[in-house]
Amino acid sequence: MKMQFLPLPPLPLGLKNGVAFSHHDSVFAGLGSMGEQWLMLDLNEQQHWQPKAPFPGVARNDAVCVPVRGGCYVFSGAGTTTELGYATVLVDGYYYDCQQDSWHLVTEDIPVGLLGGAGIAIDDSLYFVGGYNKVQFDGLMAQLSALERQASPDLKQATLVEFMSRPIEEYQWNQQIYRFDCKSQQWSRVAENPFQANCGAGVFRSDGTLTLVEGEVKPGLRSLHTKQLTFEAGQLTSSSYLPSIVEDDPKHEGLAGAFCGDVNGLWIVAGGAYFIGSQSNYRTEQYYSHQGLSKTFTDNVWCFDGCEWQHAGQLPQGCAYGAAVTTSQGMAMIGGESPQGDAMTECYLLI
């Protein structure tokens, strides 16, 4: 596959851990490191990002963004409320209307932590998989913000080490699949997720099928699998593993925060972050699998043709945790986090 990276107008400020979606020939992006800001870029004019109606809720990272006809839904994420003063998993969701340039609160009672989860819209319903355990996340943030730990770096570090030194199953990430009826605004449980619960997976959506590429299975440890779920008539009708990147690269450590999109009918997974050595550490029961390891921000670009993954090239630089959307003109890549931890303003159109 011959790739071209065409520069798009840069963001006015860096975006990481935010969300994005496309509507016709426009790209909308915001939240994460941009706070409540919400911007739009017309891909036909490509002049500059235009400010749109700001997000009305608590500013948040790693929310679930589900595009629908005419707009998108933004659910959950992690944000700091004025009441608590530390980050918690949020349980509200909003709808953004492109034509009206307006936000509407649609739920304040998400029944499970969806931080870092994924979703798909089918007919008048949204389906959600994965997500961080709210009780555990909120509890850790409360501990770390306590005065005694703020005053003692050693105690704070010990708390983190204890939390990170657990096997996958003890994190109790959301193992259920939930449905949200957009008309009645009611929740229901569809089924148990047949795959290991994920956070930060790459997402592809098409015709009632949700495909998840890798992502975390516990803090610091990535999945090596590509998983596919198919829904019909409100039910989970099939699930299967697809070929995985590790089959092409045995040293592959998995990816979290990768850029994902469709280019000329091919699935693209670009960038992402991982810890070299974390897989072997976990296999030898070193459950704090990324302890002492440096996070790698890859520049690799992978392409899936329906049969296998192949290495297709390199990004202009290694990065992760930005946003990517499929458009009629190519895959728009928006912002990201650099290896230095900075929120990036650079944007590209991959064709």
Results as ranks from 00 to 15, higher is better:
D123P: 03
C98E: 07
D42G: 13
L140Y: 05
S165L: 03
E108I: 11
Y241A: 02
L90I: 06
T230K: 12
P111C: 04
L8G: 08
S152Y: 00
V19T: 09
S188A: 14
Y127P: 06
G220M: 06
G35N: 10
H48D: 14
K183T: 15
Y287E: 03
Q186V: 07
H23F: 13
Q143I: 04
S240K: 13
D207Y: 07
P67G: 09
P243D: 03
G116C: 05
A197T: 15
Y241I: 02
Y127S: 05
V89M: 03
T230R: 12
L210V: 12
R283E: 15
G35R: 08
S280F: 01
G32H: 11
T296K: 10
D305W: 04
G322T: 09
G116V: 08
Q340L: 11
F75W: 12
F297N: 06
K227W: 00
P7A: 06
S33F: 05
D97G: 01
V58K: 02
P7Q: 09
G113M: 11
A233M: 00
F259L: 15
N198P: 02
T80N: 03
P54F: 00
C72K: 03
A256S: 14
P51A: 15
G71T: 10
S184V: 09
L11G: 04
G117A: 02
Q136V: 08
F231P: 04
D262Y: 05
S338G: 11
F21K: 12
T159V: 12
R283D: 15
Q47K: 13
S238D: 15
V74T: 02
E232C: 11
V66E: 07
D154G: 06
S145T: 13
Y127H: 01
D249N: 15
H48V: 06
G257Y: 11
L210H: 11
L242M: 07
K227V: 14
C98Y: 04
S206E: 14
L212P: 09
P250W: 03
M164Y: 14
D207K: 15
A146F: 00
M331L: 13
L155Q: 12
V246M: 01
V269N: 04
P153W: 01
P153F: 04
E308N: 05
F128I: 10
H24M: 10
Y288H: 15
K295P: 07
L15H: 11
P56W: 03
T80L: 05
M164N: 13
Y94F: 12
Q143F: 01
Q150R: 13
T345S: 06
C199G: 03
L266S: 06
H104Y: 09
S238A: 15
E253D: 05
L210Q: 12
Y171N: 07
G265T: 10
F275D: 10
A258R: 00
M3F: 08
D124G: 02
W309R: 04
D62L: 12
M3E: 13
S102G: 11
K218P: 04
G14Q: 01
Y178F: 12
Q100D: 07
V66P: 01
A29Y: 05
V246G: 01
S184N: 11
I120C: 05
L8K: 10
A63N: 07
F21C: 12
Y73D: 05
F204R: 08
G85V: 14
Q37F: 02
W187G: 12
N174L: 14
H252P: 01
A312E: 08
V213N: 06
I168P: 00
H24R: 14
Y348G: 03
E285M: 09
D342S: 12
N193K: 02
